[in-house]
């Protein structure tokens, strides 16, 4: 439980695993995974109360933006719940570590991959805890463009109406989606105000500068999850963060790396 007070997971290690694994199997979704590395490091390093991934009374985590699952796999590996051998089956034939997470894999609470499901599921987890008199909490990590989905707002209304104080949404506000910038595709702004008007406690935090994981963890740990409305932490992130030629570039939503790009990416990560 050391992680509950201080942040203990290095986001640079998550980024390195993302780069190594996605190059090894020549797949994309790299920029999205790099974007959430600090958020995942915060959650798994210092926020989620999970002594054992099989403990029925553990906090629940829903990777609602399932296409960034590689960042989650990296965290599960760093927690010691996945072996190196398992991690190295990423995208192999017969693997449980596909591009999107499957609950059959130890440490994954819910399978995702279709956007707009995760907040409802996390709200159900939070409601189950309330009905059972448990203090466990539910966290969901959403992409910003995921808020295009109407079901996100159905869940937002329900959770606020029933004051699910043990529910925390984290939004990866990197300003990009598959085919363009969110402000051009379907403008989300003013995102914080929208959540506030829906009755949520809203925290905004910058996750671009160094030391973001510690700050995010600290802000999440300040939340009163025993009373009051549900909370959303809107984290300003940088798509492709840590690899200069990927940062804020739409093509790295789907594009895999060449060998030269891989070498360059590792050099930059090592220098950071």
């Amino acid at each position: 439980m050391a992680g509950r007070r201080g942040h203990t997971m290095d986001p640079r290690r998550i980024r390195r695993i993302i780069i190594e694994q996605s190059h090894r199997v020549h797949v994309g979704h790299i920029g999205c995974a790099l974007s959430v590395a600090d958020l995942i490091a915060a959650l798994y390093g210092g926020v989620l109360r999970i002594d054992d991934p099989d403990d029925a009374d553990r906090d629940r985590f829903v990777m609602s933006k399932g296409h960034a699952a590689l960042a989650l796999y990296a965290a599960l590996y760093l927690k010691g719940w996945l072996t190196q051998r398992q991690l190295d089956t990423f995208c192999a034939d017969g693997t449980l570590l596909g591009v999107h997470p499957e609950e059959a894999l130890t440490g994954v609470d819910f399978a995702t991959g279709s956007l707009g499901h995760g907040l409802s599921i996390a709200a159900g987890s939070a409601l189950a805890a309330r009905l059972q008199g448990s203090r466990r909490r539910a966290f969901a990590l959403l992409s910003d463009a995921e808020c295009n989905e109407g079901s996100v707002w159905e869940a937002a209304m329900f959770s606020a109406h029933h004051r699910l104080s043990n529910l925390v949404a984290v939004i990866d506000l990197n300003g990009q989606q598959a085919l363009g910038h969110t402000k051009d595709v379907l403008d989300l702004s003013p995102l914080a105000n929208r959540w506030r008007e829906f009755g949520w406690n809203v925290i905004e935090e910058d996750a671009v500068e160094s030391g973001s994981a510690e700050r995010i963890a600290a802000r999440l740990n300040e939340i009163d999850t025993s009373t009051g409305p549900p909370t959303v932490l809107i984290a300003k992130t940088r798509f492709g963060k840590g690899v200069s030629f990927m940062e804020d570039r739409i093509k790295w939503h789907y594009w895999p790396m060449s060998d030269d790009e891989y070498t360059q990416a590792l050099l930059e990560l090592d220098a950071s």
Binding site: A56, R60, I121, A123, G124, A129, S151, F158
Partner: peptide, 10 residues
């Protein structure tokens, strides 16, 4: 979605 989270939670 709520039902999914509720059922996973027992």
């Amino acid at each position: 979605g709520l039902a999914t989270g509720l059922a996973e939670g027992g």
